[in-house]
Design a protein around this nucleic acid. Structure first.
Lengths: 337, 337
DNA sequence: GAGAGGTGTCGAAGCGCTTCGACTCCCCTG
DNA sequence: CAGGGGAGTCGAAGCGCTTCGACACCTCTC
């Protein structure tokens, strides 16, 4: 393993000079710089991460806490994670992958050991038990998600409330009066995951304003669960003509069941999904949808975090504006019979 | 930030004693150990990761290279990644998340800098350009996937060849003679991803032995692509009664299209999927399938790796035996008309 | 009752890097 | 032409930990 000292010797300069060439923190003459860079290349030198972290008091690592649960929005999570890793690299950071398993202890361990310089948390609950720890540590952090109380925190998220409102607005504009919301699995609401509840709030508020009726039903994914949910919905509100779906694994079952029941999309019922674009265009009916900008969220989170690390920025809540794309699954409400 | 020296002082012992309490590398009297542990707890001490890595010459970090492509088997990738992270923690390791983006350079960077003690590579191609680097480095590594040449490498993978064979066997046993294989997207084959090609090989070999005909068609996910692929298949082989699907995002479209064409599953055609169990049971027809044991692969990879790190083990190829679960999508071939 | 052999603890020497202060040139200014 | 100041380089002092050898003390054994 090549060390900085060896590079220095090879280039005929002192160790500190090599260090300054690397960091650019002091001016170095062009010729010296070239000589050093040449030596680095020739010897295949890579600075030792541990030594660097020790001496420099920063590890150049960002910790990313992903949820352990693999039952929800998995591709979105993955996309965020990859965007985080990729963006972090462009800023010279590596990413440490933590699962939710350790819970709050992971926060303590990472901040205490100096393993990472900062952290990004995903899957934030409204009253997340990791938040007190984040507030009292001096390490910068960014949440992907929005807790109930954001004081002293930096958050990046899709504006879920606006997303819910947008869906209702679209359906209202098409003349629908009775709307059913197919939500995430019950467990997601039970643990008060921010995005699910906020979507619902936004949706209901707008529905009230536009004077439509909303029936919300959580739903596990899959056909059987969806079949049950759907029949209950039509039992309770036979006049339902608009659907908002916020559960990727319910999308296809819903479409299939509607078809099976002889309800045409979009002639008889309209469907608006909240899902990644890829899912929307690959569905059996190209879905009118509000996209979940996974990449953008990951990228934003890293950029906020780097800004904080460099002291360029303070706390802030960034809510991305939702965008609804009209595709083939929504249309005018049928005339009342 | 609390240091080891402070703990030592607080406990009234020397720094080295604290270190030995932590590592257990020398015997320590019960009373001393207790006193030290008490101090550690009281002060909330966490060993500094950088210093540890520097002095101990190991970082206790495992690097995980995941593919950048998010177009394929995403939930499986995520499940593997999470299993890796979780298992690694139980062995005292953390996981560094690298994306394929940097390519072979990432290998150099990580081994060179001592950032990680070992690496796990996913999405291995038959002639992967990262392999030469792995072979010449002294750092242990494990591949999740199987390249063409495995000398000097440790690999963990599902036995895809046996998986392909198993699917054919099942269909052959039910009397099917003409089988279509819906594969991954063309790009996956073009870059010679191991699992896709091996599945095909195993499948064809067994088909030859059992004297059935196989028609293989790569397929992008989604309805449109699947519709096109399916019509081509029936054009070319109208007598096709068995399907093997190795592409999660083609599963549901296939089922829907078959239904639409009036071909009943499993009465007219049988479908065998290669996919995670969750997908199989959530599909509109509960699918006969060979499971992709993502968790097990991740766990195995870490365990092999830890064994190598501790010098307990050498190179080895671990192929997990596939298991086929019969569900509702496969049945006896219809009598020839 | 002296030597052998454990057991438990300590001090000191690094690990490879960053950074601070100091030093040497050399050019510019008045 | 002296003095000030910037540019470029170096030496040395850590950063917080691990580990090696040394040492003290204690318990056996013959």
């Amino acid at each position: 393993m090549v060390t900085l000292a060896e590079v220095a010797q090879h280039a005929g300069v002192s160790a500190s000079t090599v260090s300054y060439v690397l960091s650019g923190k002091r001016s170095i003459s062009a010729t010296t710089r070239q000589r050093v860079e040449e030596s680095i290349r020739e010897l295949g030198y890579h600075p030792n991460a541990g030594a660097r972290a020790l001496a420099g008091k920063r590890s150049n690592i960002i910790a990313l806490m992903v949820p352990l649960r693999t039952d929800m929005y998995v591709p979105v999570m993955m996309e965020i994670a990859i965007a985080v890793a990729t963006t972090a690299r462009t800023h010279g950071y590596d990413v440490l992958l933590l699962t939710g398993e350790e819970g709050p202890d992971a926060v303590r361990r990472v901040t205490g050991s100096g393993l990472a310089d900062a952290m990004i948390l995903m899957d934030v609950e409204l009253e997340d038990e990791r938040l007190p720890l984040l507030r009292e540590t001096w390490q910068p952090s960014v949440l992907i998600g929005l807790p109930a109380d954001t004081t002293g925190l930096t958050c990046v998220d899709l504006d879920w409330s606006a997303t819910g409102a947008l869906c209702v607005e679209h359906l209202a504009g098409l003349g629908h009066r009775d709307i059913a919301v197919i939500g995430e699995a019950p467990a997601v609401y039970e643990r008060h995951t921010g995005f699910a509840e906020r979507t619902l709030d936004g949706l209901r508020a707008r529905a009230r304003a536009a004077d439509l009726r909303v029936l919300h039903r959580p739903c596990e994914g899959g056909y059987d669960a969806m079949a049950l949910t759907l029949s209950r919905i039509f039992d309770e509100r036979p006049g339902t003509t608009g659907f908002v779906v916020q559960n990727e694994s319910a999308v296809e079952p819903l479409l299939a069941l509607l078809r099976q029941q002889g309800r045409a999309v979009p002639e008889d019922v309209s469907v608006v999904a909240i899902c990644p674009d890829q899912v929307a265009v690959q569905a059996s009916v190209r879905l009118t949808s509000v996209a979940i900008p996974a990449q953008e969220m990951g990228r934003h989170a890293v950029e906020r975090l780097v800004a904080k690390l460099e002291g360029r920025d303070g706390d802030e809540v960034v809510l991305l504006a939702p965008e609804l794309t009209v595709r083939a699954s929504s249309g005018p409400a049928p005339a009342a019979p």
